[in-house]
Structure formats: structure tokens, C-alpha cells
Design a protein around this nucleic acid. Structure first.
Lengths: 216, 216
DNA sequence: GTCTATATCTGGATAGAC
DNA sequence: GTCTATCCAGATATAGAC
């Protein structure tokens, strides 16, 4: 994990690693709520149940905490495409991937928000890893989809842009939750709302890829 | 417009209104780049070509500048659904709406980013207007789509969630541009990239709604 | 209406006792 | 390793001359 967060957090005793992990979890919530500049070390410390100066023992700067949070999120974000292999059934593979992404939005909305926030403001910290790791991943998996299209197993769609659409359609339920809630007229998204959202995205994307019964 | 920004900016001489507008334009760019807390009055002033104290003459606080920016964006965001009327052709109407949204992402990316940033961090300023105006708008237009579905003119999709997907799929090219660029391997999105994006979103959504030739 | 100079405050970071 | 007290930079906001 620690390509970015090369702080004290790495080489540490058991309790030390636990404290560092506690700080990162607390920081994720605070960065999600307020952004990088809006987040304060005091609030992170309070949420972590540690005195403020203690944070500066584990992470020298606020930047270092932020990088550790992004690092932790990236490790989660760059997995989940295992189903997308040439020999798989396109409908099943894409369904599995979409469900996986929706589950992430449901279970780690703060992670999604921190990631989104970083992208919106220029991705200064992530630019390089996106250009290397994410680009390589998408190229590989887009090739799989192109293979399915060439074999006539699904409709012709732009395989690379399909990833952008799937990411956007699923993460919108985490990133822009207040908008979704406002339109749906609910206080917060519940499991049933997210189930309905999952069914919708699956239906639209699979049909969009020519992978479900034709309509109307 | 000015339900939120009831500052000096409203009741003003010609040059006064022009200065206020200049400040709002500059502020949009700065808030888009740095978020609310990260934006500084000094940078907004510099970009507007005005001394810092002048900003405080037109807008008493940074909050007031921010609200004026959001206000301006909302006026743009809540229009564009005119094509979605019962008597229209579903494919043409949805195409027009998607193209409109893609054009906004291309032409006002900073507006999209400020809006997205506000949503990500809880929509404290926008909550009420989303619950009233946006909700009403979507209810009305979702009913139009439901009518088309009931008439067998398009495939059964969740009309409300369809809006979430269209917003997400189009705005991702503004909000998350660094991610798109990284994956595509380009420095920044050009007209041809956005044309391709538009074709992709149109193709996927229209096919997803059962509105284009069946495939594969 | 415009702008310089400045008051005031917040918050990241550290010194140094324990 | 932990924590209190404190330093100091940076940013909002204002006072007051022009």
C-alpha cells in the first residue's frame, strides 16, 4: 500500500499501526465532509479519540494524513474487475462489476467522496497513479470488451467510455447523495433505495450493451 | 435569480453590476479549483482584476460570494428540459437533453465542478432549492417519460433514476476530467474527445431505453 | 466607490515536560 | 509514545483616507 504514505505509520508497533489506522479512518470521514482545506486536524483528532499533537507524531503533516487516506482508498478502488475476462459471459461479467461498484458506493461512501473531491480539484496527488495503474487496468479490460463486441456477443459500445459511465452512474449515489435524496424525497438513502438504483443501472447498461431482452 | 445573493450586487449602477458579475465569474473558477475553504478572497480578487477590499464592498462575506456563484449556476442548471414533453418523439427529446447536458459540461466545466463540490460536501446551501425546484422538475419530466413507457414508445426504465444516470454520465467529463484524461492518455479534453463522449452516452442511453436499432 | 493598511482569528505545526 | 501549551503563517474582514 504505502507508496505515498511513507510516514511513521508504516514501521510501527502493533498499537502504533492501530492508531495510524484509526487516524486514517477518522480522516476519511472528515475529508469527505469538508474537503482537504476544510478539514481540520482538530476534528480528525477528536473523531479518532486522540489528542491533536498525537496525529502529528504519526503523520508529520496534514498532507501526509491525506495521502494515507487516498492510498487506502486506491487499494480498494483498483480491484473488482476480475470478472471481466474473455471467457466470461458478457452479461454476467458486467453485472458483477456494476454490482461491485454499487456495493462500494453503499459501503464506503466517504471513500468515494474523498476520491471524487480529489478529482474535481485537479487530482494533484493522484495524477501519476491514474496515468499508470488506472490507465493500464482500463486498457486491459476495454480490450476484453472489444473482444466480446468483435465476436458479436454484445452491441458496439465504446468500451473505454463505458467505464466512465459505469463509474459515474454508480458513484453518483455516494458522491451526490444529497441531490438523489432531494429528488427522491427521502432523508437518506436506505438499502431499498440502493437496491432500486442497482436494478436501474443494471437494466440500463445491460440493455444499452444489447445484453437483455429487446424492448419496448 | 437573487433569492440567495441579496447583497449589494443586486441594487446597483451599471458599472457596479458589471463588477459584481466579474467577481462571480472569477469566483466560480477559484471555487472550482480549490473548493469553498480552499478558495481565498485574494485569489478571486486577483483573477477579477480588483483589489481585495473591493470584493468586500460588493459582497460582505466570502459566503455571500459563494452563494452568488451557486445562484448563477442554478439558473443554468434548472433549464434545458423543454424538449421533454409528451407529444415529442422520445428518442429525439432524450437526445436533445443529453446533448444539452454534454454541452454544459464542455462549456461550463467550472460551474459543474462547483455544483458537484457543493453536493459532495452535503449541499448545505442547496438542500432547500433541490428539494423544491429540482424535485418538482424531475417529477414533472419523469411523468412524461413514464407516459412514453406506458404507451409502449420506449423500454421500461426507472424514469427518475434515468435522470441521475444522465446527469452523472455527462457531468463526469467536467467533474472528473483528470481521471478521463489519465485513462485516455491526453493532457486535456478537446472537442473531438467530447464529441466521442457525446456519441457514446447517446448510444448507450438510447439503446438502454430501447430507442435504437437492436443489437448486437 | 476605491484602495491601503491593519485588526483579529483560525488552524497547522512544534517544543518540551512527562 | 503521549499530551499541554504555544508559536506563527495565512486569511477574512474592516477602518478610514482618498
Amino acid at each position: 500500500m504505502n507508496t505515498l504514505a511513507a510516514d511513521r505509520a508504516g514501521s510501527r508497533s502493533r498499537v502504533g499501526r492501530e492508531h495510524a489506522a484509526t487516524i486514517v479512518r477518522a480522516a476519511e470521514a472528515v475529508f469527505a465532509r469538508h474537503g482537504f482545506q476544510g478539514a481540520t486536524m482538530a476534528e480528525i483528532a477528536e473523531r479518532a479519540g486522540l489528542p491533536k499533537a498525537n496525529l502529528h507524531y504519526y503523520f508529520r503533516t496534514k498532507q501526509a494524513v491525506y495521502r494515507a487516506v487516498l492510498d487506502d482508498i486506491l487499494a480498494t478502488w483498483l480491484v473488482g474487475t476480475e470478472a471481466l475476462v474473455p471467457e466470461a459471459d458478457p452479461a454476467q461479467a458486467l453485472s458483477a462489476y456494476i454490482r461491485h461498484k454499487m456495493r462500494l458506493s453503499a459501503e464506503r461512501p466517504d471513500a468515494s467522496r474523498v476520491f471524487a473531491n480529489e478529482l474535481i480539484h485537479g487530482a494533484a496527488q493522484l495524477r501519476e497513479v491514474l496515468r499508470s495503474d488506472l490507465r493500464a487496468l482500463v486498457r486491459e479490460k476495454a480490450a476484453v470488451i472489444d473482444g466480446w463486441i468483435a465476436a458479436g456477443r454484445m452491441a458496439p459500445v465504446d468500451s473505454t467510455h463505458l467505464f466512465f459511465t459505469i463509474w459515474a452512474a454508480t458513484q453518483t449515489y455516494a458522491d451526490f447523495e444529497p441531490q438523489v435524496c432531494a429528488v427522491l424525497g427521502v432523508e437518506r438513502l436506505r438499502a431499498r433505495d440502493l437496491d432500486r438504483a442497482t436494478e436501474h443501472v443494471l437494466n440500463l447498461v445491460l440493455r444499452g450493451c444489447g445484453l437483455v431482452a429487446h424492448g419496448p
